[in-house]
């Protein structure tokens, strides 16, 4: 019973904190636990300019729930320009634009399980490298 009550309290607290983070517009860039990146490299990763971290191929993924925030804060551009850049990249260099995930949970799951994966979410997560 005590355990159940504790779980309920902790869940409610976590939900409240998560909600507060989302409201505050926080953004956290995460990478697979085996991938080390610096905050200054994030822009290049999401523009296809940086494709490798050491010998590991980087796999950036977009997050529909956070993309607008990410593009304006980290990339300093809107979705039209971002899409245009990737159209040219794909055409000239044969690169694939980042796949789109629909939520923080999907991004966390993908980044945790995929070597070289890099994504962004609205609050911190465990089991991944926090880049920013």
């Amino acid at each position: 019973m005590k355990a159940t009550i504790l779980r309920l309290i902790s869940t409610a607290t976590f939900a409240l904190l998560a909600s507060q983070n989302a409201v505050a517009g926080d953004l956290v860039v995460i990478a697979n636990s085996g991938t080390n990146l610096s905050a200054g490299e994030v822009r290049d990763v999401f523009l296809g300019e940086k494709q490798f971290a050491g010998s590991t191929k980087l796999i950036p993924v977009d997050n529909a729930a956070q993309q607008e925030n990410f593009l304006s804060k980290t990339m300093q551009m809107n979705s039209v320009k971002y899409s245009g850049i990737w159209t040219k990249k794909a055409f000239r260099d044969g690169l694939s634009a980042p796949a789109m995930k629909s939520s923080d949970a999907e991004v966390i799951q993908f980044v945790k399980s995929t070597p070289g994966a890099v994504g962004y979410i609205g609050s911190s997560a465990s089991g991944v490298n926090i880049v920013k």
Binding site: S96, P98, A99
Partner: peptide
């Protein structure tokens, strides 16, 4: 996955 990083 190597064939497409988007997995699609």
């Amino acid at each position: 996955a190597h064939h497409s990083t988007s997995g699609a």
